[in-house]
């Protein structure tokens, strides 16, 4: 691929809108799940515009809905968002933003925008356009989708009747799926699932996931020591 020709510019923007539309549709389920978990429409909307990182948002409403404590919910959401720091580190070298742009770039640093920017890293101007256009498209449509879902669930009532409680684990599975690309990630996933289940009857709601995470990630790092680094940003841009 070559520099930022008008044709490439158009293609990047069309792709960005496509990704935005897909995540926006997904946001409808987030909005509905969040209201079903007991958050108000406004609180749900605050998560989508302020937190703006899908996996953390799903985790927070999932833990709160299951009766977990505030500290556990914040801890899980924050840990899930830690990968964004790594994305931001990469994006800071591509964007080199100053002033308010730095704040905006930080808020828009998610799986999709970083993934698109990396997809166009052969040409820095294209990469920057890919980041900003995808970030803005996802932000706008993610928030719009959230509002539709939240208002919809508010009208429907009784979440279990519509299987919304089953939608939460499905959302986690969908976010996990593209990450199960290597034996290491699959091992860590199975280990975490097993430990979390075993600890569920023993510890307060939400904490089994954290303890399982600490154990599984430690073992995963020990297992991978000395191995080639294969995964970098290998995950496909799915879920924010």
């Amino acid at each position: 691929m070559t520099a930022l020709t008008p044709e490439r510019r158009r293609r990047i923007i069309i792709d960005a809108i496509g990704i935005g539309a897909a995540t926006g549709a997904y946001a409808i389920s987030f909005g509905a799940i969040s209201v079903a978990a007991g958050l108000s429409v406004l609180q749900t909307q605050a998560l989508s515009s302020l937190m703006f990182t899908g996996a953390s948002q799903f985790a927070m409403v999932g833990v709160l809905g299951a009766g977990g404590g505030a500290v556990t919910a914040i801890a899980i959401a924050t840990l899930l968002g830690s990968r964004n720091a790594l994305y931001a580190l990469h994006m800071s070298t591509v964007l080199r933003p100053r002033g308010w742009r730095r704040l905006a770039a930080a808020q828009l640093t998610i799986d999709e925008s970083t993934g698109m920017a990396i997809g166009h890293q052969d040409d820095p101007p294209s990469s920057r356009l890919a980041f900003w256009s995808t970030g803005v498209a996802v932000f706008v449509l993610w928030n719009l989708g959230t509002l539709v879902g939240a208002l919809g669930a508010d009208v429907l009532g009784n979440p279990a009747r519509f299987g919304l409680d089953a939608a939460i684990p499905a959302a986690f599975l969908a976010l996990l799926w593209p990450r199960l690309v290597s034996r290491l990630t699959r091992t860590v996933a199975v280990l975490s699932a097993a430990v979390a289940l075993i600890l569920t009857p023993l510890l307060p709601s939400g904490t089994p996931v954290l303890v399982a995470g600490a154990i599984a990630v430690t073992i995963g790092v020990l297992l991978s020591r000395g191995a080639q680094e294969t995964e970098e940003f290998g995950q496909k841009a799915v879920g924010s």
Binding site: R83, F172, L176, L191, L197, V209, A216
Partner: peptide, 24 residues
């Protein structure tokens, strides 16, 4: 590695707990 494994681990844990548990 830690940063890349954390989401895998937490999502897998959340997924099974939110499928197979009601309270504790």
């Amino acid at each position: 590695r830690v940063t890349l494994l954390i989401p895998v681990s937490l999502l897998a844990g959340l997924l099974v707990v939110q499928t197979f548990s009601s309270g504790s």
